[in-house]
Design a protein around this nucleic acid. Sequence first.
DNA 1: CTAATTTATATTGTGTACAATTTAATTGCT
DNA 2: AGCAATTAAATTGTACACAATATAAATTAG
Lengths: 148, 148
Amino acid sequence: MATPPDEQHLCLDNQVCFSLYRAANAMVRAYRPLLEELDLTYPQYLAMMVLWSDNGISVKLLGEQLKLDSGTLTPLLKRLESKGLLHRGRSEQDERVRVIELTAAGQALKQRASQVPEKMFCLLGLEVEKLQSLKQLCDELNQVLDQR
Amino acid sequence: MATPPDEQHLCLDNQVCFSLYRAANAMVRAYRPLLEELDLTYPQYLAMMVLWSDNGISVKLLGEQLKLDSGTLTPLLKRLESKGLLHRGRSEQDERVRVIELTAAGQALKQRASQVPEKMFCLLGLEVEKLQSLKQLCDELNQVLDQR
DNA sequence: CTAATTTATATTGTGTACAATTTAATTGCT
DNA sequence: AGCAATTAAATTGTACACAATATAAATTAG
């Protein structure tokens, strides 16, 4: 009505981005107790997930999948290494490249992690269809934002 | 088909949460150049947005709106104070309470920020309907996750 | 076949997030 | 009034994110 456009747009309640930001924070928070049992943070869990299906990958490829850079991944991977879950080796062909290889313990953790997605689904407590739409919309947003 | 359930669920591509996490990171990244002109980070911009409509609020109330705790807000507000955008006073009635009041500069910044939502909308490059659905779904998720 | 360029990580520095703890002020209870 | 319990912020410590820069190995160009 009489509300000037600034008031309208500069309002928290009207902002998709704030909802998204809040949801991401809340989601990571919700994962915490589940992942605590595995002694992993959410970003560490993501890295392990990539490695469980793509063992022996480089930091660069890992970063491309997770959309994270070496500034984030180097210390994260060092922490996972110090927990004995992986080894940060070097490529034979290219000495610059770190080859990340899971240890037996790292491989084994996959079994214990296999319950996590199911538990998280219950915690999220939204219908599958809604979660699918949410994922779809986030993916569209990611596609747009990635190419800039 | 032959893929065991672990493989299926422990895959990055099948996870809503990862899409959400990526999208939130990408969104904050996209804000950066816009907010750089205002010398604000995205969380700082959020705090300013609350204060532009609710000046003189306490840290607690600010935290309730942003869903952030004093561990995050105290240093953030100190940074905004050192930029001369606000003053961290004390309530007369209750000495524990910090009353956050915008300075003239803090008030004035609202004008320069008024272009940000429009610019961000263009950057996001999704149809209004999709952004609305996205917001709606994030809000539903927030509602579920908040009450735990 | 070097010198310049590119590429893969690492490092540095800033700013969140958040759990856990601490401090100080207020409220409730008896 | 006096003291335990509560509450509001602040502090401490850990772990991201990411820009900017540095380093070292590989590739390319002349």
